[in-house]
């Protein structure tokens, strides 16, 4: 049969027994707990730092090991081969500034000049004749381009609108 507060007889007896209990002194010291926690935190990452240091040392040592004689400037890897330019973009964490996106090898004019003085102007390079421009090749008369675009004809087949 429920009591006035909604508890059964057994529940009320249990409540009464609980209220008779007194809190005991804690076995854990807060201050000590914080200290231990901090100490353990420092101690557990110490080996991490030691490992990180070792890795860095190894990395530094490897960087001083044999490597090719490529000059590195900014974010670009330059390969100064005579008469040609090869530009490979190295790893970067931010967009390159305009002056870093294209850096010539540094001697185009000089190489060309020496080439011409030694071998004559016939040695001057001429761009590759192959083109991947598709139908919009350079130098085609405007009228022809417009016609092809309007009518979809292919001039190479000799078709005219």
């Amino acid at each position: 049969m429920p009591e006035e507060n909604g508890l059964t007889h057994e529940q009320a007896a249990f409540e009464s027994a609980l209220s008779a209990l007194a809190p005991a002194a804690g076995l854990i010291s807060r201050d000590r707990l914080m200290f231990q926690a901090g100490r353990r935190a420092a101690g557990s990452s110490g080996w991490l730092w030691r490992c990180a240091t070792l890795l860095l040392a190894l990395g530094l040592g490897l960087s001083l090991m044999p490597r090719t004689g490529r000059p590195i400037r900014g974010n670009a890897l330059l390969q100064p081969t005579a008469g040609t330019l090869q530009l490979a973009q190295g790893p970067t964490t931010q967009p390159p500034r305009p002056d870093q996106r294209y850096r010539p090898t540094g001697a185009e004019y000089l190489h060309l000049r020496q080439l011409v003085l030694q071998r004559g102007v016939a040695a001057l390079p001429v761009p590759s004749e192959t083109s991947s421009d598709g139908p919009w090749t350079r130098g085609r008369p405007l009228a022809r381009l417009l016609n092809e675009h309007a009518w979809g004809t292919d001039d190479s087949k000799g078709e005219t609108p």
């Binding site: 090898t105 004019y109 001057l124 761009p127």
Partner: peptide, 10 residues
């Protein structure tokens, strides 16, 4: 010396 010139061969 870094000057890039037109393709005068053309």
């Amino acid at each position: 010396v870094s000057l890039v010139i037109p393709y005068l061969g053309r």
